[in-house]
Each structure stands twice: as C-alpha cells, then as structure tokens.
C-alpha cells in the first residue's frame, strides 16, 4: 500500500510533558484518515509537526516518502494543505483577497483559479464582505479554500467541525467527501466527534496520551463492531454444540456468555438448548459503534 504520511516513534516533549509518545501511524493514499482521540491526546501536536510548525523531539516522519530531516521535505510540504486549529485567514480581508494573498505566498502567477475555489467551498457570493463578518462555518470553508490554493493532494484538517451548527457540519462533511471522491485528495481529519467521523473516514487511527492505540480501516472497524446477539446461558458447552449444529459464527466470552454473529431464530435456539438441558438466562441485541469501540480501546474519558 502506498502511504502519503508515515510516522515512526514520533515524540514531542514540552519540558516534562510528552505530548506525543512514540507515535507511529500510516496514512494511505486516497484515504480519509480519521484521527481519533480525546482533548490533549496529541492530535494537534502531530499535525503541527507534520506541517513544520514544530520540530519533533525524537522519532521521524515521512511525507510522500521524504524524511522530515531531508531538505526536500519543504517540496513535499508544498503538496499538502492544512487547517490547523482555527482557520488561518486575515479577518480584515474578503474571501477573495485572502485567496489572492495565499496565491502570492505560493507564487502562483495567475488568480484565475480563485473563483473556482470559492465556488467549490460555496463562498462565491460573499463579495466585499470581510472575513471578520463571516459565520464560523464560512470561516472554516475559507480556511479549507486557502489550504486548497496550492492544488494539494493531501489535506490536513484539525477539528474542522468544532463549534459548527448542524448545517455547517453537513456542508463541511459534503465538501470533504467531494474533495476525496472527485479530486482524489487524501484527507487527514482529526476529531473527537466520533459519530461525525464515522460518516466520513475510510481509515482510523486511535490515539491516547500521545500513543497510537490502534490503526484500522473502516472495513476492519465494521468487522470489529459488527452486530451480534449476546446470549447468556446456564451452560456454554451446550450452547457451543447447538451453535455448531446451526453452523453460525460465534465468540465465547465466559462460562455463561457468548456473542452470536448471525440472525437467530430464537424459538429454534430455545428448543435446541432445552433438549441439551441448558437454560437461556438473557438474550440481548448488541450494535457496537466507533464510539463504543473507542471506549473499549481507551477505557473512556471525560472529553470523549
């Protein structure tokens, strides 16, 4: 698999505090990589490092296969766009002026693409309105437009839906999906709003206390979170015999509990268990989500 970004034992220490502690991650090309973690887990620190805003204390990362310590990393960085924390825009300029300024910074000689960018993020009708009078969602979209100014193929978005209203969240989500599907832009999106992230991401990285807990694809997550029926019985050996006869997938959890990954005919199961002399104590349908998977992985937290 081709990776846009990989990190290897990346560590960032501020005095005695380790914001990143040996973090290793892999962002595949073409993915929407959901970077999940509670507040203070190290998500923004990682983004600051890969954007070149800060230097790692130890470890390394590669961007498009170029090591961060190499001189060419600057060229690799030109292929990415980023919105770190708050959108980086001049508040006393209009949307178009902000984009023109970014074009100058990038050294793009023609401003022809600006209207197209404004259309893409839905800001084509803002005219002479200054950015300071924009709503939070508009500022966020302008920040994304600026990040897209250099025609990047890797977009890094740090908490892009924080503080947005439901309409704003939908707009940003649709924009990210559009960029990923239509322009094949790889997106790294950090968030602690798991429900929203699960609607977007094709890959996940779950970080806690600066350490990568788990990296998995959306398919792998689906398998890990698949629907099941938790059956509590008096004798799991009898349950195993019955389930084997029924030829269904299951996982024994304890002497009395098992998860069954199939649609069960409850009457049939009850009768079969009765014949084995086994009683059913309870039957529960379980539907795990990214949130419950995350909680099971990091043990929950105040800011999840």
């Amino acid at each position: 698999m081709e990776y846009i970004l990989t990190t290897n034992a990346l560590t960032k220490q501020y005095k005695q505090f380790k914001a990143l502690n040996g973090l290793s991650m892999h962002v595949p090309k073409g993915a929407i990589y959901g970077f999940v973690g509670k507040n203070g887990a190290g998500k923004t620190t990682l983004i600051r490092l890969i954007c070149g805003l800060q230097e790692p204390t130890s470890g390394s990362y590669t961007l498009y296969g170029v090591e961060h310590s190499e001189k060419n990393i600057v060229k690799s960085r030109r292929r990415m766009g980023a919105v770190v924390e708050t959108p980086a825009i001049y508040l006393d300029m209009t949307a178009e002026e902000n984009l023109r300024e970014q074009y100058r910074i990038l050294g793009i000689p023609s401003f022809d693409g600006i209207q197209e960018l404004l259309r893409l993020v839905g800001l084509e009708n803002t005219g002479k309105k200054k950015a300071k009078n924009f709503s939070l969602g508009m500022k966020q979209r302008l920040g994304i437009a600026i990040a897209l100014a250099g025609d990047p193929d890797f977009l890094v978005l740090d908490e892009p839906i924080n503080g947005l209203d439901p309409q704003g969240i939908i707009e940003i989500r649709e924009l990210i999906l559009k960029l990923n599907r239509e322009q094949q832009i790889t997106v790294l999106i950090s968030s602690h709003i798991l429900d929203e992230l699960s609607r977007l991401a094709t890959h996940y990285g779950i970080i806690d206390e600066g350490h990568m807990m788990k990296e998995l694809s959306a398919d792998e997550l689906e398998v890990a979170c698949r629907k099941c029926i938790r059956v509590e019985v008096s004798d799991t050996k009898a349950l195993i015999r019955v389930l084997d006869r029924m030829n269904v997938d299951y996982k024994v959890l304890s002497d009395t509990k098992a998860d069954v990954f199939a649609k069960l005919h409850i009457t049939q199961l009850t009768l079969a268990l009765a014949q084995e002399g086994c009683e059913i104590i309870s039957v529960q349908e379980r539907d795990e989500s990214l949130e419950s998977y995350y909680i099971s992985l990091v043990g929950g937290g105040e800011n999840v």
């Binding site: 980023a82 770190v84 959108p87 990038l106």
Partner: peptide, 16 residues
C-alpha cells in the same frame, strides 16, 4: 497579526 490570525502557518505549510 500574522500570528494572531494564524496566517504564519499558511506560509510554513506552503513550504516557505
């Protein structure tokens, strides 16, 4: 203002 509005980040990410 460059720091306050965060635009300095755009300059670094732009490879300057």
């Amino acid at each position: 203002e460059d720091f306050g509005d965060g635009v300095i980040r755009n300059k670094v990410v732009a490879g300057r």
